[in-house]
């Protein structure tokens, strides 16, 4: 044993009373501090890592369960068959494999629909900027088939995102599409000009490439919140079909 300290207080003994090491008191404190720091870091890091892993597992489990729940409630699982603003018939099958953002409204809408469609267009444009993300298809489905014919929609959609598709149809076809997404719509009383306001559900729906409803955004959600949510959905998407 090499003695580095003359002071017997700093000697370590084994059970037979032999000196096994010695150290100066300052270096002892130093070593102890470093050891404690290292142990703390390792233990702390381990706990943090474990927590992170458990949290990730939990999130994934929650997401899988959510998709299952949505599948069970079957929101928007039916099909729609409507005319687009070019007069072409479009069904829900046409959009399978695509991410879809859809909004129900009407072209005579005073403020809410144009605001929501501006927001939706801004979200889609921002997503378009990222080449690593799949294209998201914006859809506008009218709840006012009486006035919103193909021509009216063609005039209306050009004020918004260039890929926005307007959809209309017979009152029955439109009603069926709205019912499929639990959209409430009720035309108000007509004035002397025959003009009226349609009271309706104000929600933007996110539909996965499986054609299943994944999430919805109300008026309180701003562009960035919707953008983050959609990116997150795209990142975590697992086809369930």
């Amino acid at each position: 044993v090499i003695l580095t300290s003359e002071n017997p207080d700093n000697w370590d003994f084994n059970k037979d009373g032999q000196i096994i090491s010695s150290y100066s008191s300052s270096s002892r404190a130093h070593v102890k501090l470093w050891t404690r720091l290292l142990v703390s870091l390792l233990v702390g890091g381990g706990v943090l890592g474990a927590w992170w892993y458990v949290d990730l597992e939990k999130q994934q489990k929650f997401q899988r369960r959510r998709v299952e729940q949505l599948r069970k409630v079957a929101l928007g699982q039916g099909t729609f068959s409507l005319l687009d603003h070019m007069g072409q018939r479009r069904t829900k099958q046409d959009f399978l494999g695509n991410w879809v953002l859809m909004y129900f409204g009407f072209t005579h809408c005073p403020d809410i629909c144009p605001e929501e469609l501006d927001k939706l267009s801004a979200v889609v444009s921002a997503l378009d900027q990222d080449p690593s993300l799949p294209r998201v298809q914006p859809l506008f489905i009218t709840v006012d088939p009486e006035r919103d014919n193909v021509g009216a929609l063609a005039r209306y959609v050009k004020d918004f995102h260039p890929r926005l598709i307007g959809l209309t149809g017979t009152p029955e076809e439109v009603k069926q599409a709205a019912q499929d997404y639990r959209v409430y719509a009720s035309p108000g009383p007509k004035d002397e000009d025959g003009d009226y306001i349609v009271d309706h559900t104000v929600l933007v729906y996110l539909v996965s490439p499986d054609g299943l409803f994944l999430d919805y955004y109300n008026r309180m959600k701003n562009k960035d919140q919707i953008l983050d949510s959609i990116k997150n959905h795209i990142k975590n998407f697992r086809s369930v079909i």
Binding site: H108, D191, E192, D193
Partner: peptide
């Protein structure tokens, strides 16, 4: 500048 329906709507709003 606004349709009559919108005037009514915005006034209520």
């Amino acid at each position: 500048k606004c349709p009559a329906q919108w005037v009514k709507y915005f006034t209520k709003r």
